[in-house]
Computed example of a mutant assay.
Amino acid sequence: MRVSRLNHRVTIQRYAEYEDDHGISREGWVDLKTVWCSMNNLYGKEYWEAKQYSAENTIEFVIRYNACKDLSVNGYRLKQGNRLFNITSIDNVQYNNEMLKIKAIEVIA
């Protein structure tokens, strides 16, 4: 993949315990890091498979492997602008440790 296609910014968030401004322990979504990515709508067979699960707005993100190699489906989500995405799958493309292909469903509030 060409690096020039990584032309969007996305923030990786983790659900964790943190201390607020008053020193009180709370749980919630915490920004982990902001990385460059490409964003694509699903099409063809992948689109119809997602549609079976009522995943109306499924987006495929591609980031560099080293940007967040500990990323997991559980306890992580993506934020792009004001949009939030729950991660449904993560693929280490051809196990080359170069790119992560992330499928995520947009959270509609």
Rank of each mutant, 00 (worst) to 15 (best):
residue 4 S to L: 09
residue 55 A to C: 07
residue 101 K to Y: 07
residue 104 A to K: 07
residue 47 Y to E: 11
residue 69 K to T: 12
residue 33 K to Y: 01
residue 90 I to T: 06
residue 103 K to H: 13
residue 86 N to M: 10
residue 29 W to Y: 10
residue 24 I to V: 11
residue 22 H to C: 03
residue 6 L to I: 13
residue 40 N to Q: 15
residue 68 C to Q: 15
residue 4 S to Y: 09
residue 82 N to V: 05
residue 29 W to A: 14
residue 64 R to I: 10
residue 59 I to R: 03
residue 5 R to E: 13
residue 38 S to D: 09
residue 39 M to P: 04
residue 64 R to D: 08
residue 92 N to D: 13
residue 74 N to E: 08
residue 99 M to N: 00
residue 39 M to Y: 09
residue 81 G to D: 08
residue 68 C to E: 15
residue 98 E to G: 04
residue 18 Y to V: 02
residue 74 N to T: 09
residue 6 L to G: 13
residue 89 S to Q: 11
residue 94 Q to W: 09
residue 65 Y to D: 00
residue 61 F to A: 00
residue 58 T to Q: 15
residue 11 T to Q: 05
residue 74 N to W: 07
residue 47 Y to I: 00
residue 12 I to A: 03
residue 68 C to A: 15
residue 44 G to L: 07
residue 55 A to R: 06
residue 55 A to W: 03
residue 29 W to D: 10
residue 49 E to V: 12
residue 45 K to T: 08
residue 75 G to N: 05
residue 78 L to V: 08
residue 84 L to A: 04
residue 17 E to M: 04
residue 39 M to D: 10
residue 12 I to G: 00
residue 50 A to W: 02
residue 83 R to S: 15
residue 102 I to P: 01
residue 83 R to T: 10
residue 90 I to N: 02
residue 86 N to E: 13
residue 37 C to P: 02
residue 61 F to S: 01
residue 68 C to F: 14
residue 74 N to H: 07
residue 38 S to G: 07
residue 9 R to L: 11
residue 47 Y to S: 08
residue 85 F to R: 04
residue 11 T to V: 11
residue 101 K to E: 13
residue 72 S to P: 04
residue 69 K to W: 14
